[in-house]
Amino acid sequence: MADTITFGKVTAVPIAPVRGKGYWASVITRLVHDPVAMAALAVILTIVLAAIFAPYLGLADPYRGSILRRLRPIGFTGYPFGSDELGRDMLTRLIYGGRLSLVMGVTPVLLAFFVGSTTGIVAAYIGGWVNMVVMRVIDVFFAFPSVLLAIALSGALGAGIVNSIVSLTIVFIPQIARIAEAVTTQTRNRDFVEAARISGAGTLTIIRVHVLGNVLGPIFVYATSLISVSMILSSGLSFLGLGVKPPDPEWGLMLNTLRTAIYSQPLVAALPGAMIFMTSISFNLFSDGLRTAMEVRQ
């Protein structure tokens, strides 16, 4: 219709109401057209769904071993991914291991996202000496390398799943709080926040309507990039005996118990490491894609 040109007579074309495309809708559109991010998302979803529905997949018992069938190679009849040092099916344990590894990778980041972004946003919005005190305290945490800090905290709290989640949360809070503080400081100095203030809005309304919407996105992207770090750190804690206890399947712990088999069955011994690598790189690639999709046209 639009390309029909009529001379001498003007036909009025009714203008359809234009509904703007929301920011998040356009981010998702761009994300869907990013093949790398979508592939990473597919890997993550596969691992997550397999972990959730593990009991319904018709797998062997992850705890039942057989002293006669220890350290079978990959592809052995009945053991597609071989068996471990106690003769337990590796495929089963890798899938079940995803349950604990994912929980220990994602939970600390989620908790730190809530606590850290609240701290950072409030500190930046109040500003002044409050902000300075909060940020200096956070700097103290930055003085320690995160691995060392996680080990020290875990060691002090004692081994166990909950304790390692707590210690990893404490490791990530300062990192997220710092990003939150930086983004909030940047946003609160923009003219539209000033315009909202002169239209008489209170602090809480301004934070809710004008700050959060512009700040949570970037913090969320940063948090997703921490999931891979968190998975590696929690695996490391389990490897050191500070996280999950045997015989529970967890990738870091499996890496530890299989390390004695590194000469006899190197491929089997490397499998938990490969899972950690695949999962964390997928989270990283997805987070990269998300950041690229969000950067275009703020």
């Binding site: 703007g20 920011y23 923009r190 003219d191 539209f192 000033e194 315009a195 909202a196 002169i198 239209s199 008489g200 809005a201 209170g202 309304t205 309507v209 004008h210 919407g213 512009n214 703020q298």
Partner: peptide, 28 residues
């Protein structure tokens, strides 16, 4: 009330035009 120089920086990128204009009366 005041109108700022930078027309882009003075609008919240996450709000639609109507939400931006309706914000002040809603606050009051």
């Amino acid at each position: 009330q005041m109108v700022f120089q930078d027309s882009y920086a003075s609008l919240n990128p996450r709000l639609t035009v109507e939400d931006t204009v309706a914000f002040g009366p809603r606050v009051h």
